[in-house]
């Protein structure tokens, strides 16, 4: 089971800041590549990153509305919590952070994945944009 993580104060406010950070980074990368139009943005969201993917999706749409990034699809990939057994090296997805290794039975699983919150890829148009206005819609 994945613990659900939500902003206990104002649902979504935290994801709003995260969405703004994503939009800023994406614009920097697109600018470095001739300002080509961004079609798709891949983001990896770890289960212990504290970010709710649904809320992030919602906030991203708000943040880019009316901007150059409007219409770009956000591809959110969930990264599950992973443990690595310190006894035998086996990697597994624990239930509720249970450290018992399914391979050797020893309780020495340590977190090895699921923390990340990263920009993974961009999909850009091959063509450089024409006059302003031409590429919207």
């Amino acid at each position: 089971m994945v613990p659900s993580v939500r902003c206990p104060l104002f649902q979504g406010i935290h994801e709003l800041s995260i969405a703004e950070s994503i939009a800023d980074s994406v614009r920097q990368h697109a600018a470095l590549r001739g300002g080509r139009r961004v079609r798709r943005i891949g983001v990896r969201v770890g289960d212990t990153s504290g970010v709710n993917a649904e809320a992030l999706d919602f906030c991203f749409a708000i943040v880019v509305r009316g901007t150059d990034l409007e219409g770009a699809a956000l591809d959110l990939e969930r990264v599950p919590v992973r443990f690595r057994c310190e006894a035998c090296g086996h990697e597994f997805e624990p239930a509720e952070f249970d450290p018992r290794c399914p391979a050797c039975g020893v309780e020495r699983g340590r977190l090895s994945g699921g923390d990340e919150l990263s920009l993974a890829y961009l999909e850009l148009d091959d063509e450089e944009p024409g006059r302003p206005g031409e590429t919207t819609g």
């Binding site: 590549r33 798709r40 990263s118 993974a120 148009d125 091959d126």
Partner: peptide
Amino acid sequence: TERVPVRE
């Protein structure tokens, strides 16, 4: 379109 890996 072209896919550009970023990883940051």
